[in-house]
Amino acid sequence: MTKLTRRSFSALTLAAGAAAAFPARAADPLKVGFIYVGPVGDFGWSYQHDQGRLAIEQELGDRVKTSFVESVPEGADADRVITQLARSGHKLIFTTSFGYMEPTNKVAKNFPDVMFEHATGYMRADNVATYAARFYEGRYVAGILAGRLSKTNKIGYIGSIPIPEVIRGINAFTHSARKINPAIEVTPIWVNEWYNPGKEADAAKALIDQGADIILQHTDSPAPVQTAEERGVLCVGQASNMERFGPTAHMTAIVDHWAPYYVARTKAVLDGTWTSGDVWGGFDSGMVEMSPFNKNLPEAVVAEAKAAQQAIHDGKLHPFSGPIKNQAGEIAIADGATAPDGELLGMNWYVEGVNGKVPG
């Protein structure tokens, strides 16, 4: 494994140019590159993607050589980093944040012999595939815990970037909680970053000061969990099991399990069977999991949450089956209907029970 820094890219690019004059040997390892929006030590989103990278190394050994670049901002900097990975001989590149979508597709046009995989996006090409996880399924399960356990009926939700993925999670959670307790209100605070421990902690404190006794997050650091532990409220972790940061507060976490997908896609490149496509996996595929439920939670509540998880897994329950009302109290998803994937992928409205407006 190679951890690439931005300073190392000029040397890598020169080396790639020199190597281009010589044909690759059959025994040369496949170079697989990753770029992360946060540090691999965020213990959330980027950490969990890096666990998938490590799984590639463990599974495929000397057939592969992996590299990663962490804390790459979305935008022009991503364009440069992706380009330099491609120029330095990486034949499979995973770009793991929504804001990398346009840079990935732009660079892919210039490197048709490189395979690109973009997480959570929707733009594809012959050499660009997309993949994502149905995180909202886990949010629905977490909503059951909140509906049963909140005493103040006020839930705080720390949002990152107001894209459909995040809005969808807020809605799935709120709808689930209010099916149990219609008095529940969910208040989001948007930090407009994926990873900023200071902002995330401040948002958690503000929400708790407003009466929230449960904190949800769609941000990447464990700061909200740590704050919940300090302030004596409950919380749900993001992307990986964050129990270590809040042994009492942490009820569970929605865990992103990327390893099987990463290993399978890398094998496909090695075997010459890789093709572009789109994958959106949930509980049924193993891409989404719930971390162990806190042993201090009431057994009946945990049993109810697990039953819902199993029902979603089996296709017997869909988090966006109607009737579901929007903030104006109007039916947005009719009784007996289920929102199609296209509607979920473009979701830009709040369900009844969410305070505030979707940021423009």
Rank of each mutant, 00 (worst) to 15 (best):
A311I: 08
E304G: 04
I324H: 13
N296H: 15
F283R: 03
G282P: 05
A305Q: 02
E299T: 14
S285G: 10
G322T: 06
N296A: 15
H313C: 13
H318M: 08
F320S: 07
V301W: 09
D314H: 01
K306C: 01
G282K: 02
M287W: 10
K306G: 02
D314S: 03
D314W: 01
I324D: 05
A303L: 01
A308P: 02
L297C: 08
W280I: 14
V302G: 08
G329L: 06
K325M: 07
V301T: 15
Q309T: 06
D284I: 08
P323E: 01
G329A: 05
M287V: 04
S285D: 07
G322W: 13
G315A: 11
A311Q: 10
L317C: 03
P323T: 04
A328G: 15
E289P: 07
A307W: 05
V288P: 03
E304R: 04
Q309K: 13
K316F: 09
K316G: 09
D284M: 08
D284T: 08
K306E: 07
V301F: 07
D284P: 10
K306R: 09
L317F: 15
Q309V: 05
Q327Y: 07
W280E: 14
I312G: 00
S321K: 15
A300H: 14
A328M: 03
F283C: 08
A328P: 12
Q310P: 02
G286I: 10
G282N: 04
A308D: 11
Q310V: 03
D284V: 11
P292T: 05
